[in-house]
Simulated assay, not measured.
Amino acid sequence: MSQHRDPGASGHTGAVPALPDLPEATVARLPEYLRALHNLAETGNDTVSSEALATAAGVNSAKLRKDLSHLGSYGTRGVGYDVALLIDHIEYVLGLTQRRAVALVGVGNLGHALAGYAGFASRGFRIAALFDADESRVGEEINGLVVRHIDDLATIAAQEAIAIGVIATPAPAAQSVADRLVAVGVTSILNFAPCVLSVPVGVDVRKVDLAIELQILSFHEHRKASLTGIPASGPAAGLTALPGGLAATGTQEAVGT
């Protein structure tokens, strides 16, 4: 979920080709294409058809071809796409040709797990600094990095050229952390706190809320149960199914969100 996108973003200048102005939905799918392409390259595939790549990425081939056409990549009839060339193209568009330094704020259970995740390095990112406001956590070493106090953010952000901030704090602290990140020049934030952040124009925020994702899956489970006629369990049991998977009891109002 993206809160903001810089309306004035422009492409590279000079000899480097300008970035295409891509639809947000296409941008969201590019990492899936990249993951699938890396898997294909690792198994010795030099070329791939749009159908095979679409299947590997979990989309339909028409959508994939349209997405890649936005990049100027059309493949070769009867051959498909050059895997290595397409990897380079997508990595350039996603800005992964340089390893971006990331600051992680909040090293509780979630933050600790994120700090120890080895997959960031292979995707073009470097966890460069860890921060927390809890004095009992300051000085702790996680995956080779020492947790610094949040008051050191400005100094470390300048030293490490921090490009992206990750917030893994409790919700009440998230806004103040976001303010601190913006104040030191961070313009891209990944927010794991269950709240909406207020940031200036030009700062991009992506929100990851696991509880919301589970609630969406719960809706689909509820809907499937209503379509198959299997009674729901829990407090909603006994409700009358309505079209679309909603429910009501007698003349009571429909239960919604």
Rank of each mutant, 00 (worst) to 15 (best):
L53E: 04
V196Q: 09
G78A: 00
V205A: 12
R206Y: 09
G8M: 13
G58Y: 12
D67S: 00
E24L: 15
D6S: 12
A18Q: 15
A158K: 10
L30N: 06
P243C: 08
V48K: 08
L53H: 00
L53F: 10
G108Q: 00
A248S: 05
V102H: 08
L217S: 09
V196P: 03
G14I: 03
P194V: 07
G95V: 08
P235Q: 00
Y92G: 13
R223N: 12
S69R: 02
V208N: 00
L114H: 10
V138N: 12
Y92R: 14
L197W: 01
E141Q: 13
G111Q: 06
A157P: 05
A121K: 12
N191V: 03
T43D: 10
T187F: 11
V105E: 06
A237Q: 12
P7Y: 01
A121N: 10
D132T: 10
V147E: 03
G245T: 00
G139W: 02
V83W: 01
G95D: 10
V59W: 05
S176N: 14
T251G: 06
G72M: 02
I189Q: 10
I167D: 00
G144T: 04
A129R: 11
S233N: 05
V208L: 05
D21S: 04
K224Q: 05
V199G: 04
G108I: 07
L85Y: 03
D204K: 14
P231T: 05
T251K: 11
A232T: 02
I162V: 13
T97D: 07
G185K: 02
G106K: 03
V147L: 05
A54N: 01
T76S: 01
Y117D: 15
H12E: 12
